Simulated assay, not measured.
Amino acid sequence: AGALGGGVELSVAAERAATLLAPLLPEAVDHVLLQADLTAVAPGPLRRPLSDALAVLADVESKGGATVYRFTPGSVRRALDSGQTATDLHEFLKAHSRTPVPQPLSYLVDDVARRHGHLRVGAASAYVRCDDDTVLGEILADRRSASLGLRRLAPTVLAAQTDPVALLDGLRSMGYAPAAESATGDVLITRADAYRTPARTAPVPVPDGPPAPDSTLLGAAVRAIRAGDRAATAVRKEPAAAAPAASGALPRTSAAETLATVQAAAMTGSAVWIGYVNAEGGASQRVIAPVRVEGGFVTAFDHTADEVRTYPLHRITGVAELADDQV
């Protein structure tokens, strides 16, 4: 209710301000005074529709108590480019001028309109030319040429919206035997075994220094350091029948012992210490908690990498249970 009351008060205040200021502001006019020197004088502020239309047809030359507009070939051409015709411009000037339309202004409009559009500019990716316009007519009539975006520019020239290579392929698929030509009109000779070197791509800019690590990267680094410390300090339980291994050496167990130990760890949810050799031959020691053993692979949480990984059993050189105080 308070907001509604405030809105009503603002509306009343605005209406009162408009009533008080109206006698002090000039009244908008709906006409101009055309001059013989190709100018138009607005004796006051113009109404919005007239102001917008006149801004397209003429250029503002000066402002003040009265605004002066200048008609030029460029401004008249701008009005014609907006879709108006010479007849539309004559009627507009006659309807909004308190003075007769000067003859020089009428001549200017007619002269620019007579030359407007004689030259046409458009976009074309490729063209087809043939001395026999009947062949070009057959191509245009063929439904298979619809995807090429062909348009007749002259009796012997067609413009296309596809690139020259696609145009050549399209015409050949239609049963024609076109030949490519250069910008000078010469036939281009291509070798079947010619290969062009692909264009070089711009190198990726190298930053001045390493990017500042964010909180996610810092957290991952801390977890990796802690996991590495745990893996490095983990004490393994040597099998009773195993020969003593040198300090830091990889455990060596048979394939059957490795499989049995990993399966038991997966069932009990305990962690084990393994020796692992990757595809490049790099050996490492890891502390893993097996989750699933099947198909010659063990899926486990790797405490060293602090993530779940899958290891081929044939790359595990051995396995040992952790000491009781490490479990």
Rank of each mutant, 00 (worst) to 15 (best):
A264Y: 09
G44I: 01
A245D: 14
Y276M: 04
S125C: 07
L50M: 13
S75W: 03
A220K: 15
G185R: 05
A320K: 00
P155L: 06
R115W: 12
L136T: 03
P23I: 05
L140T: 07
G219V: 06
V29E: 03
V32T: 02
G296M: 05
A305W: 10
P102S: 05
A231C: 12
E321Y: 02
G6C: 08
R172E: 07
T162C: 11
D131S: 11
S11F: 10
L218D: 15
D110S: 15
F301L: 05
V204Q: 07
L38N: 03
T261R: 02
A66T: 12
R309P: 01
D37A: 11
D214C: 11
V12W: 08
G248A: 13
D88R: 05
D169K: 00
P203D: 03
R152V: 04
A241S: 11
G281A: 06
P100A: 09
P100R: 07
A40E: 00
G248P: 03
T304M: 01
F297Q: 11
P73V: 03
Y176A: 01
D131T: 14
P210K: 05
G228T: 15
G228Y: 07
P211F: 10
D81A: 10
A126T: 12
E91D: 14
A3I: 10
F301Q: 09
S215R: 15
V41W: 04
L4K: 09
R236L: 06
E15F: 12
V287I: 12
A220C: 08
P198A: 08
A224Y: 14
T39V: 03
T156C: 05
D132H: 08
S82M: 09
L89G: 00
D163A: 08
P207W: 03
L148A: 01
P207T: 05
S215Y: 03
K63D: 09
A232F: 10
P211N: 03
S125Q: 12
R151L: 15
A227H: 10
A221S: 14
D324M: 04
A159W: 07
A289Y: 03
D59F: 01
F71T: 02
L20M: 08
R223H: 12
A202N: 07
S284D: 09
F301A: 04
D59R: 12
A160N: 02
R114A: 15
V165W: 14
A66M: 06
T261H: 00
D208S: 13
V12N: 06
L259F: 12
T201Q: 08
T190H: 01
D169P: 00
G175C: 06
A279Y: 13
C130Y: 11
G219T: 13
A246P: 13
A249Q: 11
L80A: 01
A14N: 11
S247R: 10
H303E: 14
S75Y: 06
D193T: 12
A14L: 15
Y176K: 05
G2R: 13
R200A: 10
P239V: 04
V235E: 15
L158I: 13
V60I: 11
A231M: 09
H116D: 02
V262Y: 00
F301H: 15
A179P: 03
A183M: 02
D186M: 06
A55H: 10
